[in-house]
Design a binder for these strands. Structure first.
Length: 581
RNA sequence: UGGGGCGUCGCCAAGCGGUAAGGCACUGGGUUUUGAUCUCAGUAUGCGCAGGUUCGAAUCCUGCCGCCCCAGCCA
């Protein structure tokens, strides 16, 4: 991580920490934690939390624990435990010696529960789930005490021991904290802290327990056990803070971390709901958790987003308590900035149109030395073959220029071949149906690395040498949803109805310059004038060459063009206008 | 209509009583063998609304309005 990436952001949480440090509140220590439940893959919303928690720890020379909040074995899986670690590491963060697991504390948690019972602050309740709900009251009416609320301590102790011993069926009994059934805060109306779960194998503890603690009880105590100083979570837990404090105060733990809430990220045109992302995966609406269209960290990795771009994004959006809805453009800008600076340039033709340079001697060719980055010499050079037969992109040729601004190749016109010669289109070859199948051109041999004499050629287009070209499949991605808030649209539609059916376009016959033959999976290149692409990390081994488009280039021409189309100034020139994702 | 939050430019977001930072987006100019990059300039007499306190208010007070979250044996 670069230096300028750290130590610069400030937000209300850092202000609180600054104040705590000033008053020596935790003896100058800063310990945070990132506590995912291993029931799915991490997404961009988690990235915000990861950057916040690990970033704070880094900048205050503290530490950040990666702790799995694994108290619900019904939904969790070790596949997720592994994936989460891979993702956090890839994002660039280090959790030190080992990850933590809430399940490591099951025995301690159990003992704390017994302590609560002994204090008369918890009781075993025989009400069914439905009865518990009825007794809880509503938002505007207080709840009623459970008939089991006043069981004697000895009886509670006995019952709880037998719950643990497996004597009772699922759902027949729970352990509840005895707080206040009339509290205006529903979370304080004797919340359940332990439930019975027979017959599930926990990914960490196996079949050791048939009793599992609930989040509110587990989280604060896990934080206290680990000596966390600042427990950062999202806004929906604000109502739970009194409970967080109640358990720690009641049990008198030595350590009492401070819970601070911030608003969760909402990114337009996508989802950050783990439940819904799971649905997309399980119902095969996408290829998997790492589908390049997914807002998951694994998906963005496969797509080619650099980790530094994601960190920069998290920095740019900030941390506050206000509701937000961040535009995709911010993420895209971060990805482009990072890739523009670090991606090597290459040439690739996505929609090939054959070009023959008739003035170029038949059977000959030459190697041109071109730079890998126009602004960064340290990235070196490479050689690309030039020959008599080339491919250019169909979108770079038009028989007649639609307007004075068009500066690509037209019949009888000239254009610069990027890194090579200026050519002129002399003849158009069409098939029986009238489709253009080839261009016959001539080149100006004096224009290699030199401006043409006596005229100016404005356009520059990319190309590849036909006999040397590599054939590849290219996958073009667009946004997964066509509604800015697929999750919360007011039109009554389910988020699945907002899926963009054109989010993936596969172009099967693309031609690449030869240097791309051994492109490493995941390394992102800029295909000049097309965008950023990386070799797919799944299929690169078994299939030939498959590239994912990470991101388009900013395209002010497409913008002008679509504006013109809407105002009727010119017809459709580009059948495939570039669109940012 | 209970409780907890939030409202500063199209979207994020600084600001913490001294006269509205910055980023993204957008618009216009320059450079350019990527219509990319880079670069210059422009964009809130206004901070949800209405009162009040003050020499001075986005910042303090009062009252409204709007939006979000909470009734899992999920986290």
């Amino acid at each position: 991580m670069s230096d300028n990436e750290t130590s610069r952001s400030s937000n209300f949480i850092r202000q609180i920490i600054d104040e705590d440090l000033k008053t020596n509140k935790n003896n100058g220590r800063v310990v945070t934690r990132f506590p995912p439940e291993p029931n799915g893959y991490l997404h961009i919303g988690h990235a915000k939390s990861i950057c916040l928690n690990f970033g704070v720890a880094q900048d205050y020379t503290g530490s950040c624990h990666l702790r799995f909040d694994d108290t619900n074995p019904n939904k969790e899986d070790s596949e997720f435990v592994q994936a989460i670690q891979d993702d956090v590491r890839w994002l660039g963060f280090d959790w030190g010696e080992q990850p933590y697991f809430a399940s490591d504390y099951f025995q301690q948690l159990h003992d704390y529960a017994v302590q609560l019972i002994n204090m008369g602050k918890a009781y075993v309740c025989d009400l069914s789930a439905e009865e518990v709900r009825e007794y809880r009251g509503t938002l505007t009416e207080p709840g009623r005490n459970s008939p089991f609320r006043d069981r004697r301590v000895a009886e509670n102790l006995d019952l709880f021991a037998r719950m643990r011993a497996g004597e009772f069926e699922n759902g027949t009994k729970v352990l509840r904290a005895k707080i206040d059934m009339a509290s205006p805060n529903i979370n304080l109306r004797d919340p359940t802290i332990y439930r019975i779960r027979h017959g599930v194998v926990h990914h960490q503890t196996g079949a050791e327990w048939c009793l599992y603690p609930m989040y509110d009880f587990t989280h604060c105590l896990s934080d206290a056990i680990e000596g966390i100083t600042h427990s950062l979570c999202t806004l929906e837990f604000e109502d739970h803070r009194p409970l967080y404090d109640w358990f720690l105060d009641t049990l008198g733990t030595d350590c009492h971390p401070q819970q601070i809430e911030f608003s969760r990220l909402s990114l337009q045109y996508t989802l950050t709901s783990k439940r819904k992302l799971t649905e997309l995966v399980n119902e095969k609406l996408v290829e998997g958790w790492d589908d390049p269209r997914m807002p998951t960290i694994a998906g963005m990795r496969r797509r080619g987003y650099p980790p530094a771009a994601i960190r920069e994004f998290c920095h740019r959006i900030g941390v506050t308590k206000s509701g937000n809805s961040v535009e995709m453009g911010v993420l895209e800008s971060c990805v482009r900035d990072e890739l523009n600076a670090h991606a090597e340039r290459r040439m690739a033709v996505l929609r090939p149109l054959k070009v023959t340079i008739e003035s170029y001697p038949e059977g000959s060719g030459e190697m041109l030395v071109v730079s890998n980055h126009p602004q960064d010499e340290s990235m070196g050079t490479r050689e690309i073959p030039f020959s008599r037969e080339l491919y250019i992109d169909r979108n770079d040729f038009l028989e007649v220029a639609p307007n004075k601004k068009f500066k690509r190749l037209v019949s009888g016109g000239e254009v610069r071949l990027r890194n090579a010669y200026v050519i002129r289109c002399d003849e158009i070859i069409k098939d029986a149906a009238g489709n253009i199948v080839e261009l016959r051109c001539s080149h100006d041999p004096e224009t290699l690395g030199a401006a043409p004499e006596g005229r100016k050629v404005k356009g520059v287009i990319h190309w590849v040498s036909a006999p040397h070209a590599l054939t590849a499949e290219v996958r073009l991605y667009d946004r997964l949803f066509n509604h800015p808030a697929p999750d919360a649209s007011k039109d009554g539609k389910n988020f699945r109805e907002h899926l963009n059916l054109e989010s993936l376009e596969i172009v099967t016959t693309c031609y690449l310059e030869p240097s791309l033959e051994h492109a490493k999976q995941g390394k992102v290149y800029q295909f000049e004038r097309e965008g950023y692409f990386c070799r797919d990390s799944h299929s690169a081994e078994q299939r030939s060459l498959i590239f994912n488009r990470t991101m388009t280039l900013r395209d002010s021409w497409a913008k002008i063009e679509s504006a013109n189309m809407h105002s009727g100034v010119l017809g459709g020139v580009n059948k495939h206008p570039r669109r940012s994702q």
